[in-house]
Each structure stands twice: as structure tokens, then as C-alpha cells.
């Protein structure tokens, strides 16, 4: 079976700096895959390349059989990649429910005119969207706060809402950029359960960037370690974490 995501020889330079150099990865459907590395290793740049924020200088990205290299962010989202952000990016002056409904935008279409005139299709579609959004919020135990402005949610719940919003676009692959950043050990433990649950419940493939080694060791089945933009080591989590090269990159000589 072909991998869900295959990335071949991906490279990008900013000025003279080769931020990502010959990055390769194959992720099977249903995998929980980790991308780790010291600060500045180019992890988030890889995410930005995968989601079309940056166009790669070299290399190709396949989602299933489809070549998505060079597509726009919107097209890539519609092809089936959704993401969260390292520094949370919610629609902060919109309600929790509306945040998810923006995620549902492309799956429940009706015209602007139908919205202005409040045609029957408006009420029908909005009702379906409300139901779908609440169903998603329920999974993350946010349904009780659907009316709250998202900026007023506590930090941990904001992280969850961002995942819920990403899932609303019905992706095949979910990219999580440091989901545990700023969380205490309790919250991180809860987050690990949530991520596992998302994978099983939605039959999702997940690629995540993380610094929290407890989380990485706890839930990722396989890892790629980046250092200075290139792949240092790739393989099963337990083996990668024992690799002396990796330990050296993290802890120094």
C-alpha cells in the first residue's frame, strides 16, 4: 500500500540559509508520527512547506497518489491536510461554535445571496452545520461553551478548539505544531489521550511536532529527527530515542 503522505527530497532556502535540506518521509495511513529536533531545526518550516505557505525550491509532496507540490494553502486544505499552529491562531472574537463552523465552510456551501435573503437552504444548511459543529465540540468536551468567545477560553481548551476546527475541514492528514507547548504535565497527559482518541475515533493520520519528550515517547510510533534542516535519524520511536546522534543533537557534546 502506498503511503498517505510521501515527501521526496524537499528543500527550501531563505537567502543563503538552507532551512530544509533534502527532507524525505513516508507516513502510512493511520500512523501517529513525530517530527522532532532542536530549536531552529526547520520543523515548522516543513509544516509550512506541506501546507503551501512556502513553495519548495526542490522536491515533491504526494498526498495519496496526488501531487500537491506548489498548490496554494486553500487547495492543500481542500486536498486533505489540516493543521494547528505553534502559537494558537483562533478566530478570537468569534464564538467557539463559529470557529468550528468556519472550518466546515467548504463542506456546507450556500451562496452569499441565499444568506442575505435567508432562503430555506440557509436555515437547512446552518442547522446541519450547527449539528455537525456541536458533534465535534462534544468530542473535545467543549459543547458546553459553544457560545463563549474563543479568546475567553482557558489555554488548554483553546488548543483543543484548534484541533476541532482543523478536523472540521475533514482532513486525511492532521498536522499538530507543538500541541503541548505551554501545558503543565496534567494537561499534557490529557492531551495525549485526546490525540490518541482523535486518531482512533476519526481514523486520522497525525504528524506532530513536539518538544515534550514524554509526549513523543508516549504516543508517537515513529519519528523523524531534524537537525540544521536535514534529517538526522528516522525510524521506530524507541530506537530513534536511543540513537547517540540524537542524544548529542539535543544535549550537546
Amino acid at each position: 500500500m502506498a503511503a498517505l503522505l510521501s515527501v521526496n527530497h524537499l528543500s527550501i532556502s531563505f537567502g543563503g540559509l538552507r532551512a530544509v535540506d533534502d527532507f524525505n518521509v513516508e507516513i502510512e495511513k493511520g500512523a501517529l508520527y513525530g517530527l522532532i529536533g532542536p530549536n531552529g531545526a526547520g520543523k515548522t518550516t516543513v509544516f509550512n512547506l506541506l501546507t503551501g505557505v512556502y513553495k519548495p525550491d526542490e522536491g515533491r509532496i504526494f498526498l495519496g497518489d496526488r501531487n500537491i507540490t506548489g498548490l496554494s494553502t486553500v487547495e492543500i486544505n481542500q486536498a486533505g491536510i489540516a493543521r494547528t499552529f505553534q502559537n494558537i491562531r483562533l478566530f478570537k472574537d468569534m464564538s467557539v461554535l463559529d470557529n468550528v463552523k468556519v472550518g466546515l465552510h467548504n463542506r456546507y456551501p450556500y451562496s452569499t445571496l441565499a444568506g442575505i435573503l435567508k432562503l430555506p437552504v440557509y436555515f437547512k444548511t446552518e442547522k446541519e452545520m450547527d449539528e455537525k459543529a456541536l458533534e465535534l465540540l462534544k468530542v473535545f468536551e467543549l459543547d458546553g461553551e459553544s457560545e463563549t468567545l474563543s479568546k475567553n477560553l482557558p489555554y488548554g481548551k483553546q488548543r483543543k478548539l484548534e484541533i476541532a476546527r482543523a478536523l472540521a475541514t475533514d482532513p486525511k492528514l492532521l498536522l499538530l505544531d507543538e500541541p503541548a507547548a505551554g501545558m503543565n504535565p496534567n494537561e499534557t497527559g490529557e492531551l495525549m489521550d485526546t490525540i490518541r482518541f482523535v486518531r482512533d475515533h476519526f481514523d486520522m493520520t497525525i504528524l506532530l511536532i513536539e518538544h515534550d519528550m514524554k509526549l513523543v515517547a508516549g504516543i508517537c510510533e515513529a519519528l523523524t529527527v531534524l537537525n540544521f534542516g536535514s534529517v538526522l535519524c528516522q525510524g521506530q520511536t524507541s530506537e530513534v530515542l536511543k540513537n547517540p546522534e540524537v542524544i548529542k543533537a539535543y544535549l550537546g557534546d
Binding site: T51, V74, R89, M94, D98, V102, H105
Partner: peptide
């Protein structure tokens, strides 16, 4: 409104 609140995130969810 999603563009107003966060353009990058709006794009990432396909707006």
C-alpha cells in the same frame, strides 16, 4: 470575520 481575526488560520481551513 475569520479573515479579520486571523488571516493565516482562515487560509489554513480553506477560506
Amino acid at each position: 470575520m475569520s479573515i479579520r481575526d486571523n488571516r493565516i488560520a482562515a487560509e489554513a481551513v480553506g477560506i
